[in-house]
Simulated assay, not measured.
Amino acid sequence: MDEAARRAAPLVVAVLVVIGAILSSQRPAVALAGATVAVLVTVALAVRAASGWTLALGLSVAAAGVAVVCHDHPANLGWFTICVLVGWCAFAAPAAIALTFGGVLMLGFVGQWLVYSDESGWGAWIAGTAFTTVACIFARRQRVLLDQLREAQAGLADRTRAEERNRIAAEMHDVIGHALTVSLLHVSSARLAMDEEPAEARASLEEAERLARRSLEEVRASVGLMRSGPADAAPLPGAGDLPELVESYRRAGAPVSLRVVGDPGALHATASLATYRIAQEALTNAVRHAPGARTEVELRVEGDATRLTVDSDGPPGRRTPDGVGLASMRERAEAVGGRLAAGPAGTGWRVEAVLPG
């Protein structure tokens, strides 16, 4: 029960018991005493924000005060106070307590009816009390479900934002990691050839510049896709771009080979991008941790499955503490319904991804 309703409840009770006292057949002093008890108890319960059995017992005392005021007259409008009390209990206490409290008050009306059997109005108050109890319990349940739904939506929004941040981080990690690794190979070659082979050094620097520009375009494309949507963004690379990816490592002096079986163009866009990014990260790791070792890339597109294998002959070297690259590859594979395995194979390291076709 919210704060506003809890503050309003004693006021409503006070108005109804005053009306009941005016219409009461009791002596004024007795009616005033019953009304005072009902009002003071409800005010105390509201101030303390009582709930559970404490609330039910307090409201029972208030109901007794109402019964004193409206005693033996079913036509007295003060009996509406009982409906307010059962509604209060239904909104602020568990359903079992509210049902028990409502049942006790209905038994009170039954007792009045048995004593004053010639009055049929007690049946209406029994029905009204039952209806108010059940209706308020259902209303409270709906409010609880609505609050839970809002919390779930808020949690889903937070999780979506976190997943989006992780996706952006993975995309930037793959693009920038590849660019820096290959550019570093070209710059190293240019430095070694600067004195003896100026033309070769110049070509290496030009290739590093070209790669940096292309990587910058990929970063812009990724950011544009996140901001504007697929319709307004430049196309992202896919499995069909693997030959160019492998060639960029060859131009940098890395012994990398590629074998493609099947048609990479048959892959849907999401799986195609995942294939490219996994191969990109696997090659980056191979060149970084086992420089100079032969690396073989094989892509098989067969039926409903696509298998990408990246084998490096050299030892894997020291693994980075965060393991971001391996985690990123695994997440990309699982995001499209595939799986990824990475580990020692022979004298080197193997990354194998199986993705749906």
Rank of each mutant, 00 (worst) to 15 (best):
A212W: 05
V41I: 11
A252S: 07
T320A: 14
A333R: 03
V84T: 12
V68Y: 00
A67C: 07
E164I: 11
A5K: 11
I19D: 13
T306K: 02
S117I: 09
R214T: 09
G34P: 00
L340G: 06
D313K: 02
G325A: 09
V310C: 04
P316M: 15
G337N: 05
R27Y: 12
T306C: 06
P74Y: 10
A231H: 10
S189L: 12
V134I: 02
V336C: 00
M226T: 15
V18F: 15
L205W: 02
A21H: 05
Q153L: 11
E281Q: 14
N285I: 10
R332A: 05
V134M: 04
W53E: 12
R191D: 13
V43R: 10
R277E: 09
A38E: 02
L205M: 06
I176R: 07
L99D: 06
V144Y: 15
Q142E: 13
R319I: 10
R330C: 09
P10K: 01
A282M: 03
G65K: 02
L242S: 00
E217Q: 13
L273D: 01
A49Y: 11
G87P: 04
I126Q: 06
A170D: 12
T42D: 03
R250Q: 12
A345F: 03
G314L: 01
E218L: 14
R220M: 13
H268F: 15
I168T: 14
A269I: 13
P316E: 15
M226P: 04
A75L: 13
G58S: 07
V219Y: 05
T81S: 04
L57Q: 09
E247L: 14
G121K: 03
V18P: 09
V261D: 12
R210G: 15
S328H: 04
D72C: 13
Q153W: 10
A62I: 03
V104K: 10
A130H: 05
P74N: 09
G265W: 09
E200A: 13
A130C: 05
A90V: 00
V17P: 04
S25H: 13
L114S: 15
A190T: 02
A29L: 12
A35P: 00
L242F: 02
T42L: 03
I97G: 05
G346D: 00
V69P: 02
W125C: 00
G348T: 00
G103F: 00
G123D: 02
I168W: 11
